[in-house]
């Protein structure tokens, strides 16, 4: 007989002993007064009717400056967000702003220019052609719009995979890990590009982290009387949402039903190149299509 099996057996026996001891401590004997403690599952029923079950929203961050049209400027952030109201799943497909794609009626251009050429509808067409999903809604927010919306709901907790800073947007920088930020911090976190190792791709991923953080905040405060109503009003005020208020309200309530554990996010990757002296991204089209194909019916991407 070797020492190893004996050791293994001893460890198993010890582990079993610990489990039994804990069980005796934690699970009261039936002769003990059973009302001293209880573990009760409170059944919950929830659901939101939003037809179809899966809706797609193209969320755009416009780089319009004060005085410029938000919907006729370039899109700095491009996120195609899917929500499954039946399962509570959601996904976001990030598209780098410099992706070199065909824009109907305008030849090949950076995808960010589609909004400048033809507004949110052309932008939706360009993203739809790349990913294979035509969004049901397009929501456009300016820099200050995002800032005001985050300020309206209170500080959010972002989780940064690396430490980085930007001399103009955030000189004090972001540390690695979880941290609270207000509207200005959320904006800097979502806009900073040059300080990140993979530039546009990492920025797109940070935008998705901001979306997750906003969603977590909404979930945490949704039961507070009037919170959702005030939030939707802030969206209506700060975002060019071209839908009736009642429809926007339904979408907002559907977002609160999304379960954090069922959110998946991916960024369309690609190669860096140069066209006419401008740095561009040649997007991985087959990957973009795979994401679209994967998520179209249930708003879930199995793997990036």
């Amino acid at each position: 007989m070797t020492t190893r099996p004996v050791l293994v057996r001893s460890l198993r026996t010890a582990a079993l002993g610990v489990v039994l001891a804990l069980t005796m401590l934690l699970v009261p004997n039936s002769s003990v007064n059973p009302t001293d403690s209880a573990l009760v599952r409170v059944p919950r029923a929830e659901g939101v009717d939003l037809s179809p079950d899966v809706i797609w929203i193209l969320a755009l961050g416009s780089d319009a400056r004060p005085g410029q049209s938000v919907t006729r400027s370039r899109a700095d952030a491009i996120q195609l967000v899917g929500i499954n109201t039946r399962t509570g799943a959601a996904t976001s497909i990030g598209v780098p702003r410099d992706s070199w794609v065909g824009i109907p009626g305008h030849g090949n251009e950076k995808i960010t220019a589609a909004m400048y050429f033809g507004g949110p509808k052309l932008m939706a067409k360009a993203v739809g052609d790349l990913v294979g999903i035509e969004p049901d809604y397009v929501m456009v927010s300016s820099f200050w719009g995002l800032r005001h919306m985050v300020d309206a709901i209170g500080p959010i907790t972002i989780s940064s995979p690396v430490a980085f800073s930007d001399p103009h947007l955030r000189p004090q920088g972001f540390r690695k890990g979880r941290q609270q930020v207000g509207g200005m911090g959320a904006l800097a976190f979502s806009r900073t590009r040059k300080a990140l190792l993979r530039g546009d791709f990492d920025r797109s991923a940070n935008q998705q982290r901001t979306i997750r953080a906003i969603h977590a905040k909404i979930r945490a405060k949704q039961a507070k009387p009037g919170f959702i109503e005030k939030g939707v009003l802030a969206v209506l005020t700060n975002m060019d949402a071209q839908v009736p208020p009642a429809e926007l309200y339904r979408i907002a309530q559907a977002i609160t039903q999304v379960r954090p554990g069922r959110i998946t996010t991916c960024v369309v990757l690609g190669g860096i190149g140069n066209v006419g002296g401008a740095s561009v991204v040649f997007p991985n089209r087959s990957q973009a299509r795979r994401y679209g194909h994967d998520a179209r019916k249930d708003a879930t991407i199995r793997s990036c």
Binding site: V42, P43, R44, E46, V48, D49, R250, A254, Q257
Partner: peptide, 9 residues
């Protein structure tokens, strides 16, 4: 009514 979130005891 388009949505609900409720518990019962």
């Amino acid at each position: 009514v388009f949505g609900f979130d409720m518990v019962r005891s």
